[in-house]
Design a protein around this nucleic acid. Structure first.
Lengths: 147, 147
DNA sequence: ATAGGGCTTCCCATCGTTGGAAGGTCAAGG
DNA sequence: CCTTGACCTTCCAACGATGGGAAGCCCTAT
């Protein structure tokens, strides 16, 4: 099976399959006489595994750990669970960050007339935050988009 | 005021100030005789504006639009609101994506014993998704991590 | 005068993914 | 046998926002 078929069968683009091979996430594929990569059904299986892990938001680095456990018949499920728990903690953190942003912004949007006049609480807030009970240190570095 | 002072006063790193200048988000800074960038308080004001917009998750491209409106005394608040609404829609979409991931993963984690045995529903799910009522087209390309 | 810190530009790395160019290969149809 | 088009190969570049670092100039205080 060449890379195009493997791509269609797994849902992973040919580009990414080559990239995963290059970075060592997956082993080097066998080659046909003419240099084409040649995949077995088990390879497609592995690619689908990767695809699903990506769909759950796992970073490639984490997937590397998952793949090693997947292949290890004597793994302990606690190891898998640990990776998953670390990942879900990250997800929750990112969700909280985004929700904080969204709720702040929503308040501002609700306050904005959205008409032809120039007065705009959104710009006003960006210019000078209203909420400063004590103008000391900046309190929300973790509010950055992707920390 | 040199770039270091402007950085400390605005909360934007010197690196990023140069980057914003290079990409055209902010105008080229004045230079002292020796080539140092020289900032006025109004520049710091603008940098703080940018910083806060970043804290709300606006992309630099969106901030460019906001800055133009900010400087435009005859702006219409509806234009600002439109940008903000488009942005919050993006935020909500990303939140929904992450929440979908998190809830799927949470179910799996709850099902995983997390002990020394190898059996693991998390790996099982990645290997072959249980939930396939109709194995037709893949339905969640928007589930990718950052679409 | 010298030391130290700050400034300049330039290049590189991140992370996952896509795009394209240049060139080799395969299979079907004339 | 040859052409055509679809496929494959490798290599290089870009995205967005940020940080790291090197080489070299500048400023200020001692």
């Amino acid at each position: 099976m060449n890379i195009g078929e493997a791509s269609r069968a797994s849902g992973v683009s040919a580009k990414m399959i080559r990239y995963y091979e290059q970075t060592g996430l997956i082993p080097k594929a066998d080659r046909t006489g003419s240099g084409y990569r040649d995949y077995a059904p088990s390879d497609v299986h592995m690619l689908r595994f990767i695809r699903r892990a990506r769909d759950l938001g796992f970073a490639v680095r984490e997937i590397d750990g998952l793949l090693n456990l997947w292949r290890d018949r004597s793994r302990q499920s606690s190891d898998v669970k640990r990776i998953a728990q670390a990942h879900i903690a990250q997800l929750r953190e990112r969700i909280a960050t985004l929700q904080q942003m969204a709720s702040t912004l929503e308040v501002l949007i609700d306050c904005c007339a959205g008409d032809q006049r120039p007065d705009c609480p959104i710009l006003a807030e960006l210019e000078e935050p209203a909420d400063r009970p004590s103008p000391s240190l900046p309190i929300a570095p973790q509010l950055r988009r992707r920390p």
